[in-house]
Design a protein around this nucleic acid. Structure first.
Length: 720
DNA sequence: TAAAGTGAGGTTTTT
DNA sequence: CCTCACTTTA
């Protein structure tokens, strides 16, 4: 291969980014500007053009899928063995480091990874043991709290509680949870990152080793990094490595789970003499779609500033359809798809996007009525399905009896007559002995601490495992998986289940055997059993939602999951206030801006044609709601849109004209977005209103206080 | 121990 | 209104 091939089809800024010799590089890459391409080509350039060994490179992505795609693209360009090239997610990389340095990290050699569900169960149990009522202290919330602390790099002792009673209680659970995980060597997702960070921070030798090794670090989706990840990168680059971060502040849509797009700004400050390159040429969308998206995102404050442009043709206007209700919305979407197909286009070019998963059902039914194939993203992924988790539980327990999460999961699946009562007894014994559940069960059998009937069941359960282990000792990994699943009784159990459900479950179990047979274990420095690697793989990579079917199908997904994808034809549905922006995000300006970015992400998925649909009436939680069209619709210049109203006279809601015209609060001096001052609450901005004239109320987000609804006639607001 | 009933809760999601 | 998780009941 000729090195100059690497530059083919790159534009000037892209080429600059690929070949830059700067120590620190920040690439601000707009939607559709070829950022993945830049990373792949830079890696290729470093290897082929500069002569850097693949061994000295580290590439970080956000999903496993992105990582494998990246690797594939790079291999396609370099056409040579990439040797020991590290390319993975932050979690994957952390995991690898912890496996290599388990001892220094304070873990057992065979530490187990808790996925979210495992973590949830553990937390629930811990909270209960602390005597917390789970109605008053929802375990979900505690889990959220703990994960947030870990994202922010805080152990329980670092949490600042102040006089917050809730935080205090939740932190108590965090403390107990931490102790339990420590005792049993359990590592949740957040812990993978936090512990790796601590490992590097407190082990100068190990840190130096990796600092020397990774001469170039490349980070994708930088706007989605959280605090630990940022700190981790800081440590690693401290020894003079080159770093390139690629991101787009306008596409930061994961702030709610700890991502800090400020890390982009921070980067230019923390890394001296950062070279900043902007990729602003968009290769994806028509000019109209792009301008509309630009106009929307312009309304956000504090952007880094980027202006996407394109050489593509103007294209069609954005069709805006006011549906009568959600059924009409779905009908219209399906009808438009049929028109598209009538033009000789394909179904897999089409995506239907929505803000929340609940919206998919009506759309799905409409598609089904027309007998069109479709594929829904989201929902349970392969390794998250109950039957798969059960089977994995068997494998985990065969591998190591100390795995409590697995023990609890499978002790009575299929039913063996071991009920909640018996499990409680075992759990209590485990707590007292500070031992695993398995050991506690052994202890109870020895000391006859169980009723005879329970004892017999438990004994049966345990000897099953000893037998399984014996039988599979000499088997190859894939045969072993097969054998364990066959002998577990899970297949018979699911076969008995009624209808379709049981059948797909049995099929899934077969699929798991196939997955194990196809499993390629990654090379590691430590010799680890293939089974363990497979178990970790299942925890870290939940697998695609659906096995890729090759039939062309309409793609249905949330706006979030559409990030990174592109489609010739895109529908954004449910473009209504309260739904999008979601009502829970309207109050707080920061969250509203994230909704706007989400809108930007959604719009920029479209290559050729974009439809925006809002329903004037929607059934939500059993009652009819009348939502005005989304404020984001107002932000798109009228000349870029085409209002469609097929299907006759649809009565237009009055709210629409009012809400969309100018944002003025009728018969008052105020309008949406305006800054106002209040005698008591200080300064703030008007977010919303209802009513008019003397009855008008406005919702104001105050800088120093919470968001409040105020009567205009009483509040004595002053415009500023 | 499994099936029917009750009640809260209902953004977004990866690892 | 619909879904799920959990509780009650045979």
């Amino acid at each position: 291969m000729d090195v100059s091939d690497i530059f083919q089809n790159l534009n000037e800024p892209q080429r600059q980014a690929v070949t830059s010799e700067s120590q620190n590089l920040l690439i601000l890459a707009g939607a559709g500007s070829g950022k993945t391409r830049v990373i792949a080509h830079r890696v290729a350039w470093l290897i082929k053009g500069v002569g850097v060994s693949p061994h000295s490179l580290l590439t970080v992505t956000f999903t496993n899928k992105a990582a494998s795609e990246m690797r594939g693209r790079i291999e396609a360009i370099v056409e040579e063995d990439m040797g020991n090239f590290w390319c993975g997610t932050f979690h994957g990389i952390s995991h690898r480091l912890l496996r290599s340095h388990w001892e220094e990290a304070g873990l057992r050699r065979e530490f187990a990874i808790l996925d979210s569900e495992d973590q949830f169960r553990v937390i629930k149990r811990v909270a209960k043991s602390l005597g917390l009522d789970d109605a008053k202290w929802p375990p979900r919330q505690i889990q959220w709290f703990i994960n947030k602390q870990k994202d922010e790099c805080r152990r329980s002792k670092d949490v600042e509680i102040g006089d917050d009673y809730f935080a205090e209680k939740m932190n108590q659970v965090y403390i107990a949870y931490e102790e339990l995980c420590e005792r049993e060597s359990l590592v949740d997702f957040g812990e993978l990152l936090l512990r790796t960070y601590m490992l590097l921070k407190h082990n100068e030798q190990i840190l130096q080793h990796y600092q020397r090794r990774f001469k170039h670090i490349l980070v994708d989706e930088f706007q989605d990094t959280n605090e630990v990840q940022y700190q981790f990168l800081r440590l690693l680059t401290n020894g003079g490595s080159h770093i390139m971060s690629v991101g787009d502040d306008d596409q930061s849509i994961y702030g709610w789970r700890g991502a800090k797009s400020e890390n982009i700004n921070r980067f230019t400050k923390d890394y001296s003499e950062t070279e900043v390159i902007k990729l602003e040429q968009n290769y994806r969308s028509t000019e109209i779609i792009l301008s509309a998206a630009n106009e929307v995102i312009k309304n956000n404050q504090g952007r880094m500033g980027k202006n996407l442009w394109t050489e593509q043709k103007e294209g069609e206007q954005i069709s805006v359809y006011s549906a009568y209700n959600e059924d009409d919305e779905a009908r219209y979407v399906v009808g438009s798809i049929q028109t598209w197909m009538g033009l000789g286009r394909n179904l897999d070019e089409v995506a239907i996007l929505y803000r929340s998963n609940a919206q998919s059902r009506v759309l799905e039914e409409a598609i089904l009525r027309e007998g069109l194939p479709y594929k829904i993203y989201g929902g349970l992924r392969f390794y998250e399905r109950a039957e798969i988790k059960n089977a994995m539980g068997y494998l985990r327990l065969v591998f190591g009896r100390e795995d409590d999460a697995a023990f609890e999961r499978v002790i009575n699946v299929p039913p063996r007559g071991i009920g909640a009562k018996t499990i409680d007894v075992i759990r209590a014994r485990a707590l007292r002995n500070e031992s695993s559940l398995w050991k506690a069960a052994e202890d109870l059998l020895d000391t006859e601490g169980l009723t005879p009937r329970a004892a017999q069941s438990v004994q049966g359960f345990m000897s099953d495992f000893d037998k399984l282990e014996e039988e599979t000792e000499d088997l190859l990994f894939k045969d072993m998986v097969d054998h364990v699943i066959q002998s577990s009784g899970l297949i018979e159990y699911h076969k008995k289940e009624a209808g379709e459900k049981g059948r797909t479950r049995v099929e899934n179990l077969g699929e798991l055997v196939t997955a194990a047979a196809d499993f390629e274990s990654p090379e590691t420095e430590e010799e680890t059993s293939e089974l363990k690697l497979f178990i970790d793989h299942a925890a870290l990579d939940a697998g695609d939602t659906q096995a890729a079917e090759h039939e062309a199908a309409i793609q249905l997904m949330t706006l979030h999951s559409a990030k990174g994808l592109e489609f010739p034809l895109v529908f954004i549905t449910g473009f209504e206030e309260g739904l999008f922006p979601h009502k829970l995000s309207i109050e707080e300006p920061g969250q509203l801006q994230e909704e706007r970015r989400l809108c930007y992400v959604g719009m920029t998925r479209a290559m050729e044609k974009l439809f925006i649909i809002h329903a004037e009436m929607r059934n939500l939680y059993g009652s009819e709601t009348f939502n005005p069209p989304s404020r984001f619709l107002r932000e798109i210049p009228v000349e870029l849109t085409l209002e469609v109203r097929t299907g006759g006279n649809i009565p237009r809601q009055q709210t629409r004209s009012k809400a969309t015209s100018s944002g003025e609060v009728p018969d008052t001096e105020f309008k949406l977005g305006q800054m106002v001052a209040h005698d008591v609450f200080g300064e703030g901005v008007i977010l919303n209103y209802e009513g008019q004239g003397a009855n008008a109320r406005v919702e104001v987000s105050f800088n120093k206080s919470k968001t409040k609804w105020l009567m205009v006639s009483y509040a004595k607001l002053r415009s500023i």
